[in-house]
Design a binder for these strands. Structure first.
Lengths: 252, 252
DNA sequence: GATGGTTTCAAACGATTGTTTTAAACGGTT
DNA sequence: AACCGTTTAAAACAATCGTTTGAAACCATC
């Protein structure tokens, strides 16, 4: 009845189509709203820790010290709150890295920075930590906002990585090979983040602390990538492996 | 009241401690039980597809065409049924690969086989497909049986992989470096399985079919691994990356 | 065919989920 | 101070979860 003002319908909006005339003041008014902001701020880390499905709205409300009905009133939906969290991540990322240009550097240093940033943000639980962990959960178990996230957040970083790899390979690798190498890097990083529970069981404790911390992992990933790229023998190996596979298939 | 016979308490047994006198005939009797077997057979793929949490016991019962109370009667618990599924996976694996010896081969061929097997079982949804996918889900979101799975199922395969890598490197790599390479391989494989939803968005459709199918992925992973191992320059690269990281940390 | 243990079934249980309701409290304007 | 739209709060909503119940069906044995 009297709840017309906010309550964005979370199922209808796909993109951020904020451009209406009254939207400006509306948004400004909301920003001064303490409970909405408190809920939004608390929802991020909570979603990141347990994932969308395993978080209850009562948990979110308790974490923000607001009433449970607040999520329905301000965001319409649990999914609406989640979308708002995603949007806040994106806008914050754009503001912090307006242009990802630490350009004209040594591409090897740039690759090291990319991997280091990725792994550090995945590992630690500081301000930017929960953001990356939330995005990680989106890969593991996609929600309705998955495709949006990939296109808006992941793709730019992915292309930045590919561009760096292109400089590194000195155009000896084809486009799809660059993509493969990039995916390998991202895959190793995500695995060290999501699979740490298994790693800590498989690896002996003393090695775990000294050789499998974030720094050592960065060193290994970057070093093996550089070694495989610049050895110049990948093509020969690929030919050999292909023959192996064909032989195995015949033997079957 | 009258439900004494089966109903194993799922919370108490951690290991497979089947050795009691009457357990033999009891187990034999159960094996002839159609509903128990039907439930167990249907639960595997269902758990694999949606994960433990997102599967309802009514779903499991409907899939097996049995009553919902059957899971409580035969397995005591939803988690008890899950444990039985895990146990069935382990026993089947032991029976199929009693000794993982396709030994005395070219270690490069053996590595190719390992990666190929891993990726094929992850990708396809045949008989062995759901098993691997269920184990994958366990990594992404561990259940109370996680540690048991890692020690009993994952560790043997992991050590087999490391042994192969040791032969490949001709003892030029230290133990922890072998572990790092092994984790990189496993990480890339799991990423190509779990992250395919993202890959299919990031990669252009024509390349996706031709260059990112299972075969091409196997070729790339094995080839880049061999190239990085046998280039002999990893140590130099590691030294360089370490200096990069220290420089970055100072600049901050 | 009656008996007693074993297995199946429909129904219901208590707990928890996301969401909605209804009224009270708030805050600026006249 | 009275008004009115906006925001908060406690309670209830319907739906669904895992699990349990109690009686019916089954089945070999006497």
């Amino acid at each position: 009845m009297t709840k017309s003002p906010p309550k964005t319908a979370s199922t209808t909006l796909e993109q951020d189509s904020i451009g209406l005339p009254s939207a400006e003041e509306d948004h400004a008014r909301r920003r001064r709203n303490p409970t909405r902001e408190r809920l939004l701020a608390a929802a991020g880390p909570t979603f990141a820790q347990s994932g969308f499905d395993h978080v209850t709205v009562r948990e979110l409300a308790a974490q923000a010290e607001v009433n449970v009905a607040a999520v329905g009133y301000h965001f319409g939906d649990k999914l609406g709150l989640y979308r708002a969290v995603i949007e806040s991540i994106r806008s914050r990322k754009d503001r912090r890295f307006p242009t990802p240009d630490n350009a004209e550097q040594d591409p090897r240093k740039r690759l090291t920075q990319i991997v280091s940033n990725l792994l550090c943000r995945m590992a630690s639980s500081d301000e930017t930590g929960w953001e990356t962990q939330l995005l990680l959960r989106e890969i593991q178990r996609p929600t309705p906002v998955f495709e949006h996230i990939v296109r808006v957040i992941f793709r730019p970083q992915f292309e930045h990585l590919i561009e760096t790899l292109r400089e590194l390979s000195q155009s000896e690798l084809q486009a799809h090979q660059l993509e493969q190498v990039a995916l390998s890097i991202v895959g190793q990083c995500t695995y060290h983040a999501t699979g740490y529970g298994m790693i800590s069981i498989l690896i002996t404790p003393e090695n775990l602390e000294t050789k499998f911390n974030t720094n050592s992992t960065v060193v290994h990933i970057v070093a093996s990538t550089l070694a495989s790229i610049q050895s110049g023998t990948i093509q020969d190996y690929e030919q050999m492996i292909t023959e192996f596979l064909e032989a195995t298939r015949k033997n079957r």
